[in-house]
Design a protein around this nucleic acid. Sequence first.
DNA 1: ACGCAATAAATGGTCTGACAATATGTATTG
DNA 2: CAATACATATTGTCAGACCATTTATTGCGT
Lengths: 263, 263
Amino acid sequence: MLNAAELREDGLSDLVFDNAIGRVHVPKAADVLAERLREQILSGRLREGDQLPAERALVEQTGLGRSSVREALRVLENQGLISKRPGRNGGSLIRRPDRASIESSIDLFIRGQKLRFRSLLETREAIEPASARLAALHRTDADIRGLRDAHRQLEDAYGNVPSFLIANVRWHLSVVAATHNELLIAFMTAISHAMHAGTDLRDFNSDEVRTIVTKAHRRILEAIADRDADAARRRMERHVSAYCEQAQRKAPEGVDADGAGEE
Amino acid sequence: MLNAAELREDGLSDLVFDNAIGRVHVPKAADVLAERLREQILSGRLREGDQLPAERALVEQTGLGRSSVREALRVLENQGLISKRPGRNGGSLIRRPDRASIESSIDLFIRGQKLRFRSLLETREAIEPASARLAALHRTDADIRGLRDAHRQLEDAYGNVPSFLIANVRWHLSVVAATHNELLIAFMTAISHAMHAGTDLRDFNSDEVRTIVTKAHRRILEAIADRDADAARRRMERHVSAYCEQAQRKAPEGVDADGAGEE
DNA sequence: ACGCAATAAATGGTCTGACAATATGTATTG
DNA sequence: CAATACATATTGTCAGACCATTTATTGCGT
């Protein structure tokens, strides 16, 4: 294998390289292979459902060791580009990455950065009204059935705060699902996880709040069913911003999304 | 290591397990370790800047083989949770995941799913007006300087369509940057890459279009500088939706974002 | 005592070879 | 012919060696 060491066996070339280029980047074998395979997959030269060569075949083709090949495949698997199966006729099946990897990386980001809860609310305020509008435009009858179902669950869970919260999240996700926009769906799903974890149950502890929420949902649902994009959007905007205001009033400055209700 | 084989050395338990539980999931060693380390990092028991034990130390502590340990670390590195350095005093440094991993997973998703260009436009229509509003609310003086700088670049690039396009993207990213909302920044950055790749240069080929764009930007910038949230949002909404309409007119039904302008 | 060069040590990166676990195809046998 | 046993192909895992890279330590010359 050719690498940087051979490029500076004397002090002269050392100087040249450090001055002229600076910080020569030495890629790792596994990364190079992963990159090559990724391009082959994304460019369509390898199609979904096809099988990658077996590990040992890749070892032969690439001249790399099996550990490097395995690390490359591990990365691709992690990115949702392949899925592996052991056993005869097993191997690496080529897949198209789905929402899962987006969602997990957003989740990691939110948890890792200890993002302010306000950031989540702001993002939600951006996405949900637009989603309601798109849902009204693109919804199918099946979407409406799903929404009505989610609404029923919300009403059924009225007396149980944790269940109500879960049903609430599910309702909002149903709206986004009706947009048929995979990107918005992925964003909202990821945010929902964190929001749900970071929401203080006491926010929904009053009958009044739950009644208002349910009524607002009803009206939004009707607008979507009627394909009234403007109304859907306007109502959703009100609904979300009302909630955000309430949350802001409670915690005026940056509170972590760790869900441990203080004060 | 204990695994599924020992649970069904006779047909009886086989039946029991297949009927009662179905599809026993056997986690892989590397995934288990990665999960453990990830939780330690995210929970804060291992702090940013700390070092993970060396690979060979982890081998001893976990009882796993080095290849499994390495695959686990490779996954964590890929998720932006650690970064590795060779050499004495090298090792695995604990990091907080940044936007990079979100952006790359969104990018993979967009390319892998061959997402309709319309989906990107819709998402942009959701995010940008909200961003303009937040930028007006949260901007600092430095943000304004950055925006004016980006605006100057746009004007300078007026005559050169590819440069104009790049400066245009940069201007929009500057707006989102002024929101100081890491999540929105990550979303827009990721979408911008794909949008830029998928935009037909001819969309900006007329002087008229470029003049309109520049003027709209100017007015949005002023609103943000004046902290006029409503105006900023309204103007951005108009600006973006005008562009979307134009793009829709050109390609009324789902066109892949591969940038190869047909028709 | 000081500075610099050679050497050692610690660590990630890679290869090889072996065996285990798993899943499927194929032959064998009652 | 069906159920079972065996063969085979594949991923999963481990162990050990050696290479590459970086830093600490040592030792030597001045």
